[in-house]
Design a protein around this nucleic acid. Structure first.
Lengths: 232, 232
DNA sequence: ACCTGAACACCGTTCAAGT
DNA sequence: ACCTGAACACCGTTCAAGT
């Protein structure tokens, strides 16, 4: 098995460089890209680095610490737009690009939503986003509005990630809804069924539908925030 | 240990009634209320029912099947408002009451967001919600708007649940933000810090802040949907 | 049909002992 | 300081054997 224990007698005696916390996180980020944040074990990281499982605890800490290291590294890859653009464009940009990065590392979006500003690499984005909202006239509500917009977008990415780990879920949902198209006794479900029926079901179609719904969510959330400005 | 194997020789020979799928889901729902959907094991359910672990697979299926059974039961406890109320009130009601139920069973909100209409007991709510939106004038966009509102509310509950299983996360976040209140070089974080500083940090305060943010999110999402009506 | 009892292939974490 | 190697207390799932 590829996930079994290493064979070598000693790293030092074999002339190998010592393992570092950084190299452990590197391997964990790689595995997260392949299988998602819940798709690997401490033992698999150890096998990939050709060391015994206890070594990970020694250099990084428990599984939680490794996960936080991965999260911080992935978040740092999300580009922060310049703060000279209109606020709606700023959020559209950071969230679309953020989604692209996060979807490459399934499970990280969820973590980001949960721990938020506890991830050091998220701080520059939070600072810039709140500044942009203050400049747009949200005043002291800027932090709350930031959190709302941020959560709307990335909690949805977290759901998309989760759905990806139920291989059948996406297709099942579409098929289940489409079956209601002729249900006259339940007009709400019938309407949803009619919409579902008109849509493709192969993976490319589903990916396009997900992207479209993400942007729909984004625009509705921005509209919801904007209503705070116009109703003053 | 309370989670160890049963001792009795045979249920039948001891005059005990046979285990049913329903009783297994009962026990799983109970454990979910105590520890959350990720807080119990198949073996713990077996111990609580005083049977061997293989019995769960025999009557219900694998862990996934048990989780879906729990999800369906919990969702069925969310009351569906009458469809004679204005659409905003309808959603306010179902989402506030839904949150109350879901927070009693941590982890179920996440499942609901992921599998959606695949949970049979969610269908009456979906039907009624889309009908309410059609009556309000959303036309063929009603299913998409329903999904948006639904996701906004319950994906946030899922994040609240997750945060609950990081005992330190909530307090850490507040403290981390408050520390930025004097950071003149980062005015965005400073603004968030000032807000955080003015807030209580004991569990009751934090729960109240979470409820407040939930309602903020709800109203902003409803505003975002309403903008589709007024801009026609 | 229902359940027992064990086996299998995994987990994360800990820690004494070696180098 | 760093790593080995093993042990511990768990998992979910499977399945032959009993009743």
């Amino acid at each position: 098995m590829a996930d079994s224990a290493p064979r070598r007698r000693s790293r030092a005696s074999a002339g190998l460089p010592p393992i570092t916390a950084d190299k452990i996180i590197d391997a964990a980020v790689e595995l997260t890209g392949e299988r998602g944040l819940d798709g690997w074990s401490i033992r698999q990281i150890a096998t990939r680095l050709d060391v015994w499982p206890g070594v990970i605890a020694h250099h990084v800490g428990d599984r939680e610490a490794v996960v936080m290291g991965v999260t911080d590294r992935v978040i740092s890859r999300i580009p922060v737009p310049g703060d000279d653009v209109p606020w709606r464009d700023w959020f559209r940009s950071v969230m679309s690009e953020g989604r692209t990065v996060l979807r490459e590392y399934p499970g990280v979006a969820r973590r980001l939503c949960v721990v938020g500003p506890n991830v050091p690499s998220a701080l520059p984005t939070i600072d810039a986003g709140i500044r942009v909202l203050m400049k747009a006239g949200f005043g002291e509500q800027a932090p709350e509005v930031y959190r709302f917009l941020f959560n709307s977008a990335f909690a949805l990415v977290a759901v998309e990630d989760d759905r990806g780990s139920f291989p059948t879920a996406r297709a099942d949902m579409g098929r289940a809804m489409a079956a209601f198209a002729e249900d006259d006794s339940r007009p709400g479900l019938a309407a949803a069924g009619t919409v579902a029926r008109g849509r493709g079901t192969d993976p490319r179609d589903i990916a396009a539908q997900e992207t479209e719904f993400f942007h729909f969510t984004l625009e509705r959330s921005l509209d919801g925030a904007e209503a705070m400005l116009t109703s003053r």
